[in-house]
Amino acid sequence: MDIDEPLLLFRAQFLQCIDHDFIRWPPSVLLQQPDAQSFLSKKLFNVSNPTSHPPASYEARVLKTLIAKIAKSVGSIAANNKALEDLSFRLASLQSMSPREGPITQLDANVTYNCIPQNSRLDTQESWRPLTVVESRSLVAGSKFTGHRTWEGALHLASYLVSKSDLVLGKSILELGAGAGFISIMCAKYLGAARVVATDGDERVVKDMRRNLLLNELETEELISAEQLVWSRDLHDKISDGPGFDIVLGADIIYDKGATEALVDTLSALFDAMPQVSVLLSNAFRFPDVFEVFQTGCARNKLRTRVIDYNMTPPAAQKSLFYTTSMPLQIIEIQQDQLRKKHTAGSTFE
């Protein structure tokens, strides 16, 4: 059957574990329809693929509200409604689980993102490009272990990359501070990158990232690999034997003063080795004083920063890659200034 866009929008929000209070629920007139109820029962809440399903605690809360909305829309015929009975049975099953049964806490959540442009139609065959990663959804910005989840800056950068279909195609990509690996996996899985190296300084994060590569059936190191890279320390050892990179990406990695100074040193070293490399960083302005450290460091190393003309998509208009826009988000391009270009013109990547 043809699936109405509000149902597909609800599916994308549910699988991305959007906060219950911000979900755009299908309208009552649609929830009355048997085909719509069947889609919800069989395609969303019948766990055919548990490795891409949200935590049970989250699913139960969403399902409880959905059942109430369906019951209200169908009125007196609710008692004889097979789909509603199936959904109610699923809710009871979720509520009976103990906290240790399966990935049902926010500490270990399967989160599925739909990697399509924000202006896409949802009712086409190309409108579902899922990417699932395991994340720790309870993390707070600024904590010591931020690498275990995907933040707003990464989703903003992802929206930009999928809107520029040729930007990554055929290119060699290095991601700094890749965290759960979402950006790197998307580049390899859907954007046609020729080679992707996803890096993070935390060994535990890299281990989890490799699990996410397998989760997305990306098992060939020729296409994508996850490696530990500590900024300003072991850049040369990690990439000096390779062919270099066309694009360096980073999202939500400017949040700690010491780490930001090391990041600038790493970017400077990358430009020394690869003068023609393109650097794009997505940043949420949570810490203005830290961003000032970044800008000062770039200026000291003769690196120019330019804000890309790409606006945040308002939440009410988002159809995929959902993220909040209460915090200003910008994509920054970093280039060498003319004096530095002359100095590095003869550099090679050895």
Rank of each mutant, 00 (worst) to 15 (best):
S268E: 14
A36C: 14
R61H: 01
L40V: 03
D35A: 11
K207Y: 12
A68Q: 12
G142K: 09
F89W: 02
S28C: 10
A83C: 09
L155I: 13
G75T: 00
V134T: 12
Q338E: 06
S28I: 02
L191R: 11
L167Q: 08
T132Y: 14
L303W: 05
Q228W: 05
N212E: 06
R304H: 06
I247N: 01
W128P: 00
T325W: 04
S93L: 04
V133K: 15
P243S: 14
I334C: 11
N216Y: 07
F349D: 04
P130L: 08
P328C: 02
E227Q: 15
M327F: 01
K257F: 05
Y190A: 08
T220G: 01
S165R: 14
W151H: 11
S38C: 11
A316Q: 09
I247F: 02
D123P: 03
K144A: 12
A259G: 05
S127E: 06
N311Q: 09
T220V: 02
Q338H: 04
T344A: 10
Y190R: 13
E222I: 01
I247Y: 00
T146Y: 04
F294Q: 03
L218C: 05
C115P: 08
D208V: 05
F182E: 01
F89A: 09
A109Y: 05
L63P: 06
N80Y: 09
G147I: 13
M209W: 06
V140L: 15
A56K: 10
Y113T: 00
T220K: 13
N216L: 10
A79E: 07
K82H: 10
V140D: 08
P117T: 06
T266D: 08
K171M: 06
S138D: 15
H20P: 00
S98T: 08
L155V: 08
N311R: 14
V140T: 13
S225F: 07
V279C: 09
T313W: 07
L223P: 01
P27H: 10
F271N: 05
Q338F: 01
W128C: 00
K43Y: 01
Q295K: 15
T112F: 11
T65H: 02
E292D: 07
S138I: 10
L169C: 04
D246N: 15
K42V: 00
P55R: 09
L66G: 00
F285N: 07
H236Q: 14
F349L: 11
H156K: 10
D289W: 03
G242C: 15
L214K: 14
R61I: 01
Y160T: 02
S278E: 12
A226S: 13
D265V: 02
T348P: 05
F285H: 11
R90T: 08
S326F: 04
L321V: 03
Q125G: 01
F39T: 01
G242L: 13
L215K: 15
M274W: 07
P55C: 09
S184Y: 04
K82Q: 11
V62N: 01
I18Q: 13
